[in-house]
Amino acid sequence: MSSSAIEADTSNLVCQLDNVQGIVDALSTVRWKRHQDALVEVSEHGIVWIVEETGCLQAKVYLQKELFIRYEYTAQGRPRFGLSLGLFVDCLNTFSVPGHSSTIEIRYPGPDMQLLIKSADSLDDCIYAEIRTRIPETISWDYNFEPAGSTPLSFTVKSAALKEAIDDLEWPGSSIQIILKPVPPSVTFRGEGHGDLQIDFMYYANTDLLIAFHCDHQVSYRYKYKFLRATTSNIPSSVIKDNRGSKLTIGRGGMLKVQHLVSVARPSTSHQHIDSAGYQQPSRIAYIEFFVKPEEDEETVND
């Protein structure tokens, strides 16, 4: 660890983590295409990754400092920098050795504003990387998600079931309508395109799938299929294995928020008691949020 004396001078973020695969999983969740740029925001609370597409879809990954075994942030404010998400994930992947728990150290900024990563396991073997960062582009919309009314419009569904439903809706394609109804309490996904497909989650009939449900008046919004699909297409297998739920909330104007929880627990604990791992280490969860803008009315007519 002391071998990087040269780099230590410039870095005001030094953090170490012991579950590389967990972070790879969390970041892969928001990687809906191969080449994707991310905006990274560093603060005393942790690191936030923001990815967006054409002003209609935005995703955030929150890596709170509790996920790291060491997290030292010495600067003021919240520096932001741009980075290729794909490159970072591919690079991080080389640090993850199946069957080994590997510890890595991340530093920012390097002498040339790079992001520096290196393995911190052994003195004789070392993997290292330097990734060039960019001056951040401004985000085209940093949406403050606002609740639609006094009662939140939300439901929590098993992540596996949500992914399956959205995968199935590929066939009608293009535009998907999500309808929340208080009586009977239910959520409907409806696709119209090359044909019709409707998937209903009935709250009382499927309490094991639809875990929670809040809705006091009927709402219905349409979302582009490709954006909806991006929210679930790369859910890591650990989320499905851990039998986790995803929370969907509809905010003002039909803005859809999709939240997933990805475990970044140490591999040793997550191997044995998958279900209890989350409870034992409640803080070792990466929070993932997607924001999807609804389709405009005239667009739906044209479609």
């Binding site: 490159l87 073997d125 993997i127 990387a129 330097e130 990734i131």
Partner: peptide, 8 residues
């Protein structure tokens, strides 16, 4: 964009 290496 990146330098990635390993030393044994």
């Amino acid at each position: 964009l990146i330098t990635l290496g390993a030393e044994f």
